[in-house]
């Protein structure tokens, strides 16, 4: 796992892993806007657990909010509320009409509105630094529109089969960060996380891959470190553009 860090993170300043090029990250009216990071991946891979762990790790440093996209409405939002990872007013559930990928890729209007409502509500309290947009568990083809998020994380897990990275798909090959989760289960499911990571790297070129085990102490650290770096780069751009 530590070996993965060393190999994955040197790329984080590269163009491919950097913030997307485009207009200045402010709103048309000049007010600041939060960095938006999407988390996608198959059902059960640990997206919601990753969001919860990220919130716990980053909430003291940054002002955070979360948008969930459930297949059956509010399941994920309810989990995050029960876990009390953020104040309830910082968590919004978007309903997706049985098509979670549509809401994050083809018709992003409901998600954009959820993000903007969270930003508006937080504005009197110093605004938001980061909005995490979690997709409903979907399949390997689901990716976020660049109109909705600035960067995306794709979460898979060792228990779903070690051939997933080899199969590829847009999430595996193009996400700004690929997370291979539940490495603690590898011995029980007869899977080699290092081989999965190697397969993933073949698919992804210079884009980073990290292995996580959220059950271990600070298990989300590789994802939190990557997020922190993206956020710092975003805020530097924001300063430059103002």
């Amino acid at each position: 796992m530590h070996k993965e860090h060393a190999e994955a993170f040197p790329q984080r300043h590269s163009h491919s892993a950097g913030p997307p090029l485009g207009p200045a990250p402010g709103r048309p009216d000049g007010s600041r806007r939060a960095l938006r990071i999407g988390l996608g991946g198959p059902v059960g891979s640990g997206k919601t657990a990753t969001v919860a762990a990220l919130c716990r790790t980053l909430r003291e440093e940054f002002s955070l909010a979360v948008v969930t996209n459930d297949i059956y409405t509010r399941e994920d939002a309810a989990f995050l509320l029960r876990a009390a990872v953020l104040a309830p007013e910082r968590i919004t559930a978007v309903e997706t009409g049985a098509c979670p990928h549509t809401a994050i890729r083809d018709d992003i209007s409901a998600n954009l509105e959820a993000v903007e409502d969270l930003e508006r509500a937080a504005a009197p309290h110093g605004g938001l630094d980061l909005v995490l947009v979690e997709s409903g568990g979907d399949n390997l083809t689901a990716t976020f529109s660049r109109g909705l998020v600035d960067a995306q994380i794709f979460v898979i897990d060792v228990a779903a089969g070690d051939d997933i990275p080899r199969k590829g798909g847009p999430g595996i090959t193009t996400a700004d960060l690929l997370v291979i989760n539940k490495t603690d289960l590898a011995p029980y499911v007869g899977c080699d996380p290092a081989a999965m990571a190697a397969d993933a790297k073949t698919q992804r070129g210079r884009l980073p891959v990290v292995l996580t085990s959220l059950n271990s102490e600070d298990g989300v650290a590789p994802v939190a470190d990557w997020t922190r770096t993206r956020l710092e780069a975003w805020q530097q751009r924001e300063t430059v553009s103002q």
């Binding site: 997706t96 009409g97 098509c99 549509t102 809401a103 083809d106 992003i108 209007s109 409901a110």
Partner: peptide, 11 residues
């Protein structure tokens, strides 16, 4: 039906 105005989530 693909016009992105949110209708897909409503019945």
């Amino acid at each position: 039906g693909r016009f992105p105005a949110g209708g897909h989530a409503h019945s």
